[in-house]
Structure formats: C-alpha cells, structure tokens
Design a protein around this nucleic acid. Structure first.
Lengths: 117, 117
DNA sequence: TTGACATATTCCAATATGGGAATATGATGC
DNA sequence: GCATCATATTCCCATATTGGAATATGTCAA
C-alpha cells in the first residue's frame, strides 16, 4: 500500500501548505468565491478548485451556491481533533504549564510515599 | 511534481497515524529502545525503524546510543509550529473564546462609531 | 439558443510513499 | 575473529499525489 490519501482525514488534508493558505484566508470571513480565492492566492483556478475539493471531502469547507458563484466557508470545528492531539504536547514547551506539571508530579510522589508508610 | 515528501516538515511527518502513535508513546518517557517500541506498538521492527527515520529527519525525535541499543526521545518543541497554526482556530469552537471575540468586535465597532462622530 | 462567465474535471507525467521480505550494518562479549 | 543481539537499509510493488493544459459542466441573461 502507498501513502494514505489526502482525503483520509484532516491531518493529511492539512499537510499541504497551499491548503493551509486557503484555510487561513477562509478564516477571515465566510463566503469566498473561487475567483476571489484565486486572486488572493495567486494560484491557477484549477489548482484552487482541486485543493478545495480535498478540503470539501474532509469536511473542512462548505459550499453555498449563489448564482454562478460558489461561495466557500470554513468549517473550523473539523480542525479540533488535530488541535486536541497537538495540544497535549503544549506542556513540554510552555514554561508555565511545565512548572505546574512538575509540581503535580512532586505531589503525586509525596502521596505515594504517604501511602507506603 | 508529486506529493510533498513526508520529511518536508512536521505537518507531513505527523499526517501518518502510526507516527503519531510512536510520538504518543515517546511522550510518556525518554529513552525508548526500538525493541521496546516494537513490543508496545505491535508493528514489525523495520516498520518502526522506517517511521523513526522520518521522525528523525524532521527533528521530532533524537537518538542516544547506549551499547547495542539506540534510545529514542521526543523533541516536542518541534510540534510547536503545528500547534501555533491550529491554535488560531480554537476561538471558532471554544464558546468562552467566542464570546470574548464577539465582545472585542463589538467594542471595535463602538470605537469606530465614536471616531466617525 | 447562444454567449459569457464561473467553476470543476480529466488526462498526463514525475514522484514519493508504506508494507513485506530479505539483508546489511553496528555493537558487544568471548 | 565469531556468534549474537539490536537496528537500519534495500528492493519491489501498488497506489496516490501534484501541477499544467485542455476541456467539460453549470448558471445566468438576452
């Protein structure tokens, strides 16, 4: 088997930097037409449409037809699983959380000492 | 051109679920031997070694030689860019941050009204 | 219907992947 | 040096990708 499809999950979809660029734009307002995205991104229209297709498949964007245009909006909640996964590691670089973690571990040690005695 | 290499950046390296499994394990303590990882993950040794190779290339893990063994440890700080990117979207699903955002926007509107008058 | 605009899809080539099996490299102790 | 344990690499295959160019589909208005 080969590499996992980009449409498998949000992690794979978002690994492509151009798709993150699109997401960043979409976060600023709702209802972007493809043309508007093309102008702001400086990518060819088919490229944008293809990336939007991937984002659509994983549910990261929704579409609204308005006349000839198709208005795209971000569905940010789909990013939550990724956020939740990576957030766990925050404590490893955040000094504040680090000290909280150290204190908690120390308390746990003290507690286990008490239990043993 | 084809898809971006898995070793291009953390986003690509981490898109593979087995590599996230490895990272999750490594987060629990420092200095895992490959054999230890193999036993805990239930994957063949070459598979684990190959995934570790990718993680090494992007700097997500470090290695320490100890006798015949190679002890792997997580370098969690490398996950920070991913965390920083996705954290931006937290406000879209976090009700608390959402209300803060709404209030801030309202204040901004009020301010701009005052300036106009 | 026809024309014009907006967007999506298809076809192509080059490339990288991940798993499995086999094998190579490395380090140790005797 | 040699046997052994620990880990890394190579080879092969099936598959999915991306960009570019061309083209198809869709929607409106006259």
């Amino acid at each position: 088997m080969a590499r996992m499809a980009t449409t498998t999950d949000v992690f794979n979809a978002v690994a492509e930097p151009r798709r993150r660029e699109i997401i960043d734009l979409l976060a600023r307002k709702s209802g972007w037409s493809v043309t508007e995205l093309v102008l702001n991104l400086g990518m060819p229209q088919p490229t944008v449409s293809k990336h939007l297709g991937v984002l659509r498949e994983v549910g990261l964007v929704s579409v609204d037809q308005k006349g000839k245009q198709r208005l795209y909006s971000l569905q940010p909640r789909e990013l939550k699983p990724m956020y939740d996964w990576v957030k766990y590691f925050e404590k490893f670089w955040d000094e504040h959380l680090q000290s909280i973690k150290v204190i908690a571990e120390q308390k746990a040690r003290e507690l286990s000492k008490k239990e043993k005695s």
